[in-house]
């Protein structure tokens, strides 16, 4: 009996240890970034494991840079517009794909799925030409345009899956009442689709906020950059002397909005990720 209890106790503490190491491994690097961001430049080179003193000079340095604030607002603008455009185009497409049966439906879904697999670098030179042709080079709207390549496919995919699950009686009643397709979509379906729209919108926002390759290639000047590029470009007096405190403060500022979003909408994001991948 005691041996059995001992075994149980060992198993349970082993499991707790495993969980603790999972949490520590996941959270510690970000915690260490926060810790570093609160160090003055002289403390930076003493390794410590706990926050001892709050020094806000790095945050002051980041926030006093106009270019960083400009990048931050560019990121907000680009990510928000990307979400709006993907949802708008995604909703109309999902209505057609989810509610109407027509020849070619399967092919359209296949095309959408194929585009989501595109390596971004494969379209880089062609897209560069298109963006320059549209006069959108070094312009946040050019980024919004290019970001639809990865946000639109999964928006269409997830919204279509969701739209197909809604009962058809809703739509039939509205059509009998003489509603046009646009009215049906925006007055009948959209109010029911908030959960799916919130999920896809969040995923699109995070993807656009984090994107780097297009942002790096299609912008040129500091005032048009988004935050990932701005952080990658922070440099010190020489290549060997990066201002790590400032980089970490900027990183924390950029990541906090996302971490808050993720913690609030945890369930939603998980369901969106699994709907996008597993049901595909």
């Amino acid at each position: 009996m005691t041996r059995r209890q001992l075994k149980r106790w060992a198993l349970r503490s082993g499991f707790t240890l495993l969980l603790l190491s999972i949490v520590l491994f996941s959270v510690y690097p970000f915690y260490y970034a926060i810790l570093t961001s609160f160090k003055s430049s002289s403390e930076l080179f003493n390794v410590s494991y706990l926050i001892s003193r709050l020094d806000f000079s790095n945050y002051g340095a980041v926030l006093s840079q106009d270019s960083f604030l400009q990048s931050f607002s560019n990121s907000v603008l680009v990510s928000t517009l990307t979400v709006v455009i993907s949802l708008l185009f995604g909703l109309t497409a999902a209505y057609a794909l989810g509610r109407v049966d027509f020849r070619g439906r399967g092919s359209v879904l296949l095309i959408v799925l194929a585009v989501s697999m595109f390596p971004q670098v494969a379209v880089l030179s062609g897209l560069f030409e298109v963006i320059r042709g549209l006069n959108l080079y070094n312009n946040p709207f050019g980024l919004v345009f290019s970001y639809t390549i990865f946000t639109l496919p999964f928006t269409v995919w997830v919204l279509t899956t969701f739209m197909r699950q809604l009962p058809k009686e809703l739509e039939e009643a509205a059509i009998v009442d003489g509603a046009t397709p646009l009215v049906v979509l925006f007055k009948v379906f959209v109010p029911l689709m908030w959960p799916a729209m919130a999920t896809t919108g969040l995923l699109a926002f995070i993807a656009a906020w984090n994107e780097f390759l297009f942002a790096l290639t299609f912008t040129l000047t500091d005032d048009q950059r988004t935050v990932p590029v701005a952080i990658a470009m922070i440099s010190g007096g020489s290549a060997y002397e990066l201002p790590w405190g400032i980089i970490m403060a900027a990183s924390v500022l950029v990541t906090i909005p996302l971490v808050v979003l993720v913690l609030i909408f945890q369930r939603r994001i998980v369901s969106g990720l699994t709907a996008g991948a597993v049901k595909g």
């Binding site: 935050v227 952080i231 990183s251 990541t255 979003l261």
Partner: peptide
């Protein structure tokens, strides 16, 4: 959390 952090960060 690691999933949400931008790759650059």
């Amino acid at each position: 959390i690691p999933w949400a952090i931008p790759t650059i960060v």
